[in-house]
């Protein structure tokens, strides 16, 4: 089954086209990177999939169904800049929020949920930081906590917006390892990513985007100098590097 099917998606902000006629499908159990230059509409694509922004046209099916029916089977990790790091919340309560979607209205998280939250914290190697306020952590630790929150949502589809920006190597390794484990369990993971140098190593498939879809599919087919040149246009210094390494 396809995890995500996008047909003829168009999104615009105040008359400026952010995404033009984007079509692709992602099958279940794949780890997909969305890559492209700044302003290519990568985050917009994630938000459109989640219907967080209005789209001009297009049809999106998720896990064989409409978004409305599967919302709770999707975990979304926002960009770090979207979070108020001074909020009075500690690490363990942040992860516990991941269990909220499965708790009905008027009910509160119980022991089962708290245990799950701690288990997820342990997976990202952050158990010892459970009582810290989230702003006291390093960027990489913060990202791991938010990944733990997504794990606590126990979903089939994960959407992560720029999880590797400004984080340390150790955190990056932990996150990549967990994403691959999730993929091996049959989950689908879509990651907005900006660092081309590791794209080949991290992902099974790529969506190369620059307002329109330049190419999509298997990493080896998408990640060619020609496609990259098409997406990144005039950014020559980078192109030269590419040619030299390939």
């Amino acid at each position: 089954m396809n995890a995500v099917e996008v047909k003829d998606l168009r999104v615009s902000y105040f008359g400026n086209e952010a995404l033009k006629k984007v079509d692709f499908t992602i099958s279940e159990g794949t780890l997909v990177g969305i890559i492209g230059p700044n302003g290519a509409g990568k985050s917009t694509l994630l938000k459109a999939i989640l219907n967080l922004i209005p789209k001009d046209s297009g049809e999106i099916n998720i896990l064989g169904s409409t978004l409305k029916e599967v919302r709770k089977r999707i975990a979304y990790v926002p960009q770090r800049s979207a979070i108020d790091w001074d909020f009075p919340i500690r690490v363990k309560e942040t992860v516990l929020i991941g269990t909220y979607p499965s708790i009905s209205l008027l009910k509160k998280p119980g022991r089962k949920e708290k245990e799950l939250a701690l288990k997820c914290l342990e997976k990202v190697d952050m158990l010892e930081f459970q009582d810290r306020q989230i702003g006291e952590l390093s960027g990489g630790q913060q990202q791991r906590v938010f990944l733990a929150r997504a794990l606590a949502q126990q979903t089939d589809l994960f959407l992560l917006d720029e999880p590797f920006v400004g984080i340390d190597v150790a955190s990056e390794e932990v996150i990549v390892r967990i994403l691959k484990e999730l993929r091996d369990e049959g989950k689908t993971i879509i990651v907005v990513h900006h660092d081309l140098s590791k794209a080949e190593k991290y992902f099974d498939e790529l969506l190369l985007l620059n307002k329109e879809l330049i190419s999509s599919g298997d990493v080896k087919e998408v990640f060619t100098p020609r496609n990259i040149a098409k997406a990144y246009g005039g950014q020559l210094s980078f192109l030269e590097e590419m040619v030299m390494t390939t």
Partner: peptide, 9 residues
């Protein structure tokens, strides 16, 4: 705390 996540689910 995280209105985007709240909206997403």
């Amino acid at each position: 705390f995280d209105p985007i996540m709240a909206q997403a689910y």
